[in-house]
Computed example of a mutant assay.
Amino acid sequence: MFRDFNPGKFIVWVCVATFTALLSLRLDGELDWSYWVVFSPIWLWKGLVVLGALVGNIVWWRNPHYRLEGQSYIQYRALLISLGLHLFLLMFEVLVADKLENHRHAWVSVFAPLVLISIVSIAACIWAVKHDRSFELELFCSVNLLQFIFIALRLDEYLHWPWEIVFVPAWILLCVSVVAVLYSIIFAGLLLRMPDVNPDRRRTSMNSAIGYTCLVAPLLIFLITLASKLNGNTSATYTSVVSPLYISYATLLLMSFTTKRANQWWFGLRKDLCQFLLGVCPLLQEYANISYSIPHLEDSRTGLQQPPTDPGVLTNEKRDVVASSRRLEHRVVVPALSLEVPD
């Protein structure tokens, strides 16, 4: 399950889901906390990013021989690009928290770092495609540039459009996403009707169709209810408005177990997190890689019935055969140690 686990994405979506719950409760008046406390999951996310990048840079500069390993230079540059985008995003989040708490800035100035991120993200996406790197955050910011500008102008009342019109860029993106979801569903259905298709391919296409449906459909429902709430056409609370998002969050958390591995220079690990934990904890390396199974009532290899609870009724010959068959059931999947017996 942890073979393709991306711990960074898992932590990000846990923090975002927690922040969404706290913010909706604060807007509904259920909590009287300061907005600086409401944004605490976001501060935790950014703190881990800055700490991980700092440790990665220290390891990079103190160990020059590590730079010769595979694609170390590409991964290190990806680390620096991601760090820069997160710092600008942190600036935007600080301005939002200060605006909600003290009402000191115009929304146009608050969204200025986000607009700058969106422009830089276009070049970051091109670089990521050339070097086969993941770019979810960069893609999200680059395609929503116009949406960020519309929201800032509407909040400052430079525009007096209904929120349905303000969200037009988001509607366009969601329409494209819905078309992609329908295509994935149709493709998965066609594969199910083809008997000569590999079962693994069928299962992968079906999982992709279900995952994209659970990701896009709740976003569409959320955007419709949010526009109605901001226009004053409904008395629904913000907690009920954001409730469909938790389906998308749960889907993204599950998808973090099947995505590409994170940048190996975060915290200077230089390897997958699971491999790092196995190296740090020798007990996990020695015992967690052993597969155990309960013997069946009839062993297909020996043809013997499972022994009764009283071992005294077994003859010595049968007891030896049963013991040897049980020893075969305990097999090492990944040998952790290599023992050499001297002559």
Rank of each mutant, 00 (worst) to 15 (best):
S248R: 00
G279Y: 05
A123W: 08
S82N: 13
V176Q: 02
I221R: 01
A170R: 08
F39D: 03
L304W: 02
I224F: 12
L100F: 14
A128K: 05
H160F: 04
V120N: 00
Q71M: 07
V313P: 06
A21R: 10
F10Q: 04
L79T: 06
F135M: 05
R62D: 15
G52A: 02
L48H: 00
E298M: 15
T225Y: 14
G312M: 07
D320K: 10
F187G: 05
S325D: 10
F276I: 01
K9E: 14
T302H: 11
I185L: 11
I186Q: 11
R301C: 09
V115F: 08
E317P: 00
N263V: 09
Y238R: 01
V241K: 04
V166Q: 05
S134R: 08
W107N: 00
E329N: 14
H131V: 03
G232V: 07
V178T: 07
P199Q: 08
P162E: 11
L278M: 15
W163L: 02
M1C: 06
L31V: 12
T20K: 03
W161F: 11
W266H: 01
K271P: 04
S24P: 06
I126P: 00
V242H: 01
F148D: 06
R261F: 06
T239Y: 03
L339R: 07
R67I: 01
C125Q: 08
R203P: 04
C141V: 03
S118V: 04
R331F: 14
P7V: 02
I117C: 12
I74N: 05
L23Q: 04
L114Y: 08
I221Y: 06
W13N: 13
S325M: 08
K130V: 03
Y35C: 03
A236K: 11
S34H: 13
L253Y: 01
V280D: 07
E136P: 10
I117H: 09
P308L: 12
V38P: 05
L48Y: 03
W266K: 02
L277N: 00
H103N: 15
L252F: 14
S338G: 05
T239F: 09
R201D: 15
L54P: 01
H296E: 12
K130L: 11
D132V: 09
S291C: 10
S24I: 03
D200R: 14
A17W: 02
S109G: 14
D98L: 09
H131I: 02
A53I: 00
A288H: 08
H160E: 12
P342H: 06
P282T: 07
V37D: 10
R327M: 12
P169R: 03
V179E: 07
D4R: 11
A106E: 14
M1T: 04
G52Y: 00
D98M: 05
Q306V: 14
Y183P: 02
P335A: 07
L191M: 13
